[in-house]
Simulated assay, not measured.
Amino acid sequence: MHQPSPHTAPLLDIAALRKSCSSCSMHQLCLPMGLDESDMLRLDSIIGRRRVRRDDTLYRIGDKFGSLYAVRAGQFKTYQANPDGARQITGFQMSGELLGMDAISTDSHQCDAVALEDSEVCDIPFARLEELFGDIPTLLRHFHRIMSKEITREQSIILLLGNMRAEQRFAAFLVNLSSRYAARGYSSTNFQLRMTREDIGNYLGLTIESVSRLLSKFRKEGILKVDKRDLELADFPALKILAMGADTCS
């Protein structure tokens, strides 16, 4: 897969996505370092490719678990249903991240996964992956690290929604996106929000009006530059201070 622009995440390049794991620009994020060529070929042999159009569903709550999905290009959102039937977004996933680990213990998916844009995933049959774990210990250790990161992410969400005021929640959300884009070789300060303001509000426990007000507030304070869904983090140090719960004026 061709290398992304240093400024913004590229649109989906279907021709480039036909290449194997070893040539994918995201493989260092979702695969362990140190796999030799034969191990990489064995892993690549079990992986399928699946395209998911914008707003289409990768899997639904209750679907039988069979595969994990590594996001190869594009972005997704996952959500569950609250007791009252309302949807609660539980995360946004981008290139190099895994989807479907929620289903390993129950053998069925516990959330819906929907594409935020035209996307492609690597379909990794879990039964065949487990067979490789016995032969490739490095792969198993890497999988354990991924699961640990997922637990940490969920704990961070609880903290985000439980203890932070609205301004801090939104700032922390943007700082998190910034770091994730940077890890993928994209700009950490110029990117596009693939999710809607309504989705962001749902995820952060805020109304869409609150999200719009915060965008306007941050823009007026010179922290952000906003053009529809395009963002520039104009004063990243100030944004980080807000995310930590401090007052930028202090």
Rank of each mutant, 00 (worst) to 15 (best):
Gln155Asn: 08
Arg141Val: 10
Asn176Leu: 05
Arg180Tyr: 14
Glu167Ile: 05
Tyr186Glu: 09
Arg213Ala: 13
Phe173Asn: 07
Ser119Ile: 02
Gln192Cys: 04
Gln155Cys: 03
Phe143His: 06
Leu206Asp: 06
Gln168Val: 07
Ile151Asn: 09
Pro137Lys: 11
Pro125Arg: 05
Arg194His: 14
Leu174Gly: 15
Leu132Gln: 04
Leu132Thr: 02
Arg219Gly: 07
Leu116Tyr: 07
Ile158Val: 10
Tyr203Asn: 06
Asp123Arg: 15
Leu132Trp: 02
Asp123Met: 02
Gly205Thr: 03
Leu159Trp: 11
Ile124Ser: 01
Asn176Lys: 07
Ser119Arg: 06
Tyr181Ile: 07
Ala171Gln: 15
Arg219Trp: 00
Asn190Ile: 15
Ile208Cys: 09
Ile200Leu: 03
Asn163Met: 15
Phe218Asn: 08
Glu150Cys: 00
Ala166Tyr: 00
Met164Phe: 03
Leu204Gly: 13
Ile200Met: 13
Leu132Ala: 05
Ser156Pro: 11
Phe218Gln: 05
Glu167Met: 13
Arg145Cys: 05
Val175Met: 14
Phe173Cys: 14
Lys220Ile: 11
Val211Gly: 05
Lys220His: 08
Ala113Arg: 00
Pro125Asp: 00
Arg141Phe: 07
Arg145Ala: 15
Phe170Tyr: 12
Phe126Cys: 00
Glu198His: 09
Leu116Lys: 01
Ala127His: 02
Arg219Pro: 03
Leu214Gly: 09
Arg197Phe: 15
Gln155Gly: 10
Met164Asn: 09
Thr207Val: 14
Lys149Tyr: 07
Glu120Ile: 02
Thr138Glu: 05
Ala166Glu: 14
Asp112Ile: 00
Leu161His: 14
Asn190Leu: 11
Glu150Pro: 00
Glu117Cys: 07
Phe191Asp: 09
Glu198Leu: 04
Ser156Val: 08
Arg141Ala: 15
Gln155Tyr: 02
Gly205Cys: 10
Met164Val: 12
Ser216Asp: 12
Ile208Ser: 06
Gly134Pro: 04
Lys217Ile: 09
Leu174Lys: 13
Gly201Thr: 06
His144Cys: 01
Ser156Trp: 09
Glu131Gln: 01
Phe218Ser: 07
Asp199Ile: 09
Met147Val: 01
Ser179Leu: 12
Gln168Ala: 12
Lys220Ser: 15
Asn176Ile: 11
Val211Met: 12
Ser216Val: 10
Gly134Cys: 01
Leu140Lys: 03
Leu132Asn: 09
Glu154Ala: 03
Gly134Arg: 03
Arg219Lys: 14
Arg141Gln: 13
Asn202Ala: 02
Leu116Val: 12
Thr138Val: 14
Ala127Tyr: 04
Asn176His: 08
Thr189Tyr: 03
Arg128Lys: 04
Phe173Val: 10
Lys149Leu: 08
Ala166His: 14
Leu193Asp: 08
Arg197Cys: 14
Ser179Gly: 11
Leu140His: 06
Leu160Val: 04
Glu130His: 10
His142Glu: 01
Gly162Cys: 14
Ala172Trp: 05
Ser148Trp: 08
Thr189Lys: 15
Asp135Pro: 00
